[in-house]
């Protein structure tokens, strides 16, 4: 199966290891992976912030960049939701571009759901960890996968769930810098929850949430480490050295 990786701007810049892991895992399960170099951002920050003209321009661009491929896989559920749900309505006025954005929406997959639903991989059966783990369920994943899905994927690990399993990390795109004090206060609640689990490894599949939580944890001196599920999976499958 041919798969194009949509890495997302944040993973590309801050968390390339997740992309590396995805490439290795997809290849392990028999996919040929492509990386269209023209890709940038899906426009989600602009969309959430209300700048829909800018978001429309970027989603139209995305559709063009990924036009040659039959499957598009991304580490981020929120970017997948942007492409799948919010993209096409932005281009409603331009039939050609709209049709392209609908094609993109239909072929775009979040990584874990692609493994499960297209490649029939039993994620839980392959995952291993040498230590207890906890997790962050990203709010913007709701339309892509549920909290129960995430818990099912992690079910064979020593999971220490936070008491409030679906608490927001406080990132929220531009919100994080428009109202930084509030964003940080919400982050404080989230980190309290994670720290109270006693686990030091946090599975988080959104690089934006990781940027926020890791930044807050580092500022507070909390010994939390964050990994995309793909990284842990690649390590479990022996495709990557375990990261510190």
């Amino acid at each position: 199966m041919d798969v194009a990786l949509f890495i997302t701007c944040l993973s590309d810049t801050f968390y390339p290891r997740a992309g590396d892991a995805i490439v290795r895992v997809l290849r392990h399960f028999g996919c040929r992976v492509h990386f269209p170099a023209g890709q940038t951002c899906c426009g989600q920050p602009a969309f959430n912030s209300g700048f829909h003209r800018a978001a429309a321009v970027l989603i139209r661009r995305m559709a063009t960049v990924f036009e040659p491929f039959t499957h598009v896989v991304t580490p981020s559920a929120s970017c997948a939701a942007m492409v799948k749900q919010h993209g096409p309505p932005l281009l409603a006025d331009d039939p050609g571009a709209h049709a392209a954005s609908v094609r993109l929406a239909e072929k775009t997959w979040e990584f874990c759901t692609f493994l499960r639903d297209r490649l029939n991989v039993d994620i839980a059966a392959h995952l291993q960890a040498r230590e207890p783990v906890t997790f962050h369920y990203p709010c913007h994943a709701r339309s892509i996968y549920g909290l129960d899905d995430l818990r099912a994927w992690l079910s064979r690990l020593d999971v220490r769930p936070p008491a409030r399993t679906d608490l927001c990390c406080g990132f929220g795109g531009l919100f994080a810098v428009e109202f930084p004090e509030l964003s940080a206060a919400m982050l404080g609640d989230k980190l309290d929850e994670l720290a109270a689990t006693g686990a030091r490894l946090v599975i988080c599949n959104e690089s934006a949430c990781t940027l926020q939580m890791a930044g807050g944890a580092h500022r507070r001196g909390l010994p939390l480490r964050f990994k995309h599920l793909a990284e842990l999976l690649a390590e479990s499958l022996g495709l990557m050295e375990a990261a510190a």
Partner: peptide, 12 residues
């Protein structure tokens, strides 16, 4: 209010 990780030495 938060630390910012420096971008990865090499982008993806």
């Amino acid at each position: 209010t938060r630390d910012l990780p420096c971008p990865a030495v090499r982008s993806f």
